[in-house]
Amino acid sequence: MAERPSGVKKNEARTSPVRFRHKHLLAISDLDRFEIESLLARAEAFAPLAEQKIKKLDTLRGRTLINLFFENSTRTQSSFELAGKRMGADVVNMSVKSSSVAKGETLIDTATTLNAMRPDLLVIRHGASGAAELLSQKVDCAVINAGDGKHEHPTQALLDALTIRDRLGAIEGLVIAICGDILHSRVARSNVALLTMLGARVRLVGPPTLMPAGADRWGAKVFHDMRQGIKDADVVMMLRVQRERMDGGFFPSAREFFWFYGLDEDKLKFAKPGAVVMHPGPMNRGVEIDSGVADNPNISLIETQVRMGVAVRMAVLEALAESGSNAGAR
């Protein structure tokens, strides 16, 4: 087993990992700044591990992690699987199509069944907002929300923060524009909560039909003109537009969306020189992002996001495993 690597000092105040006081990770809005800094510090320490020949630790040896994905996902599911395996846990992937959910079992029935198998960590993705919360009330183990409906995706926000810190140092004071389909985005909700907590000035950019009611009261500034919205931004974070929203429901067409809200080199000129671009993936090239931007290694952090995803999930698994023995609040 490899030695646990030590974290790299950056210019932001670092806290040494302390015992995580939550039993579950359901939403960024459950956490305070100290807890987020602490998770990021843990994750930062795990990041270099991926570059080593032997990537496996034994922190979670003997523990069982179940990946329960009710929505299709390639990158999040494999990221959690890899994180669990690198921490030494036994990982079981349950995909919905082969599970008894397809046979009519309710979420609570599934939870009860899984609970009887005594897992230590349960990672859930579900199309309904609040599904992770419901599951957490019905099982004894730690629950990690890997995306619930239009509510939250906390590990995505953590990995985004880690990616920004890795490239730009501190998050405090940065102007970060989150662009596209804010209305349906759990990534946006988690990121607004996390980034504003860390002192970033967050902007939300998108057509009015894809902006939630009252978004201006989230602590972010709302823009409907993309050039104004990303003006002088340090980070431009693009969101995925779902195909089913494209045909005239929320906006008229993919080409109109790209013309006004797609990130291309021309619009990116309005951001601060040296601004970086992020995307949670998978991308719709030519709809929300131009390939010339997405594939430019000098400005695109999309690969770094994937890399940091594993580190963040290792940190979350470790933190929850530690708190597991300590019967605390959620």
Partner: peptide, 15 residues
């Protein structure tokens, strides 16, 4: 305001 004036899908208002 809607494609073909059908009342179903909005047109490309921006373009």
């Amino acid at each position: 305001l809607t494609k073909g004036l059908s009342g179903a899908l909005m047109t490309e208002i921006g373009l």
